[in-house]
Amino acid sequence: MIAHPFDYLTPKSLPEALLLLADPDAKALAGGMSLIPMMKLRLAAPAKLVDLRGVPGLTSISEESGRLKIGALATHFDIESSRLVRAKCPLLAMAAAHIGDVQVRNMGTIGGSIAHADPAADYPAALQALEATISIAGVGGTRAVSAAEFFVDTFTTAVGPGELVVEVSVPVEAAGTGTSYQKCLQPASGFAIVGVAARLQAVSGNISMARIGVTGLSGCSFRANGVEALLESGSDPQAAAAAIANGIDANSDIHASAEYRLHLARVYAAKAIRAALAAAR
């Protein structure tokens, strides 16, 4: 469990970090909760680590014209414990609170988590349901992509070589919106076997808007558009949740076969929808 040798660099500004990351042998280091274990298992061997934690301005959480702007270096603990996030975008706080254990949440960052794009990570489900926007900075400037475009495949995102996630932007929830994140834990790692984020707007039980994000079920997080459409056209939660697995090529491993995962996805989708509905009241 000893990493290959590497250099450790500590840029003091975003441009400096981006410059250092232009080297194809360099890799960004945020909380280290995914990267360091991979290096110790010798699954990753960057020659240079560019520690982002000295770059100012990347940890802030603020409200700006109807949205919350969350710096890429905000830790899971920052997010789960932020009054602003808990009040204005509780789904994100709830997803953060489900991650790993206290030690991991104190170190790991939202930018690192989504850039890593583990297919069983928690944030992606929430960000899909929230229709979050992710800002990606490169030497040529900054661009914004939607969560749906951001998560491309297993461990693959829209972040290009030498680019950095700098900010995640999520909506301030309107009155009448209810959200919930429900997760089935893998008992060893604590990651999601499946996790479902539900975000609903409902008036006296009639759902006018439904957004369902799913993680763990397949190679990449996704929005369950079929379930959303059923909910918006008046299906009951159970029946709508059943559609979550339609057309999905589910993961299969020693912790859950594809068949069982698909079943769990339906169960957890129903749980999340019911809880979001209750919260919308």
Binding site: L41, Q186, P187, A188, S189, I254
Partner: peptide
């Protein structure tokens, strides 16, 4: 060994 690390071998927490 498919359960060769604590990410896959679950001792109760």
């Amino acid at each position: 060994l498919l359960t060769g690390e604590f990410m896959d071998y679950a001792i109760p927490k």
